[in-house]
């Protein structure tokens, strides 16, 4: 059975970081002591602040731990897409989304792979629509559980 829409969403942890030293280290320390593994991460920064986005092994626990640690944290649904690990691989995925009028807010890559393909996190507004379109085009998206336990 092919999981569609809802079932293919991946939970991402986002966190507000002031641009001051030691804050990122504090996040990783909190996750580490609570046995939570970081699967993928990216930081978007401006001159004054940054937003840390992560895919972790246990998002619900991470949300709780980081909130208790005094951070502003939120959970957002994103898509994990398998991308052929070859020139033009990502381009093919992006073309499909563009053709269907889906805007990408941001994207970043996993370090690990689930297969021979590379793995990319996509953040879009119309998430279920995007998943359906990608799958219809034969592009594989991963379930949350599969991504957390990579």
């Amino acid at each position: 059975m092919i999981l569609r829409g809802e079932g293919m969403r991946v939970k991402q942890i986002s966190l507000f970081l002031e641009n001051k030293s030691g804050r990122l280290a504090e996040v990783t320390r909190l996750l580490g002591t609570n046995d939570i593994n970081i699967r993928a991460l990216s930081i978007a920064d401006t001159t004054d602040f940054g937003i840390l986005r992560m895919i972790v092994s246990n998002p619900d626990e991470a949300l709780k731990v980081l909130k208790e640690g005094g951070f502003t944290v939120s959970m957002t649904d994103v898509i994990a897409v398998e991308v052929a690990d070859q020139p033009g691989g990502l381009g093919a995925v992006l073309q499909v989304l563009q053709d269907n009028g889906i805007n990408i807010e941001y994207l970043y890559a996993f370090l690990e792979k689930s297969s021979n393909d590379a793995l990319v996190v996509l953040r879009v507004e119309q998430i279920d629509e995007a998943i359906n379109i990608l799958q219809a085009k034969g592009i594989n998206t991963l379930k949350g559980e599969d991504v957390y336990s990579l």
Partner: peptide, 16 residues
């Protein structure tokens, strides 16, 4: 201003 959960977003442009 402290960024509350309500104010926060994963998107830079919303915070800006």
């Amino acid at each position: 201003v402290e960024v509350s959960d309500k104010m926060f977003s994963d998107e830079v442009r919303r915070l800006e």
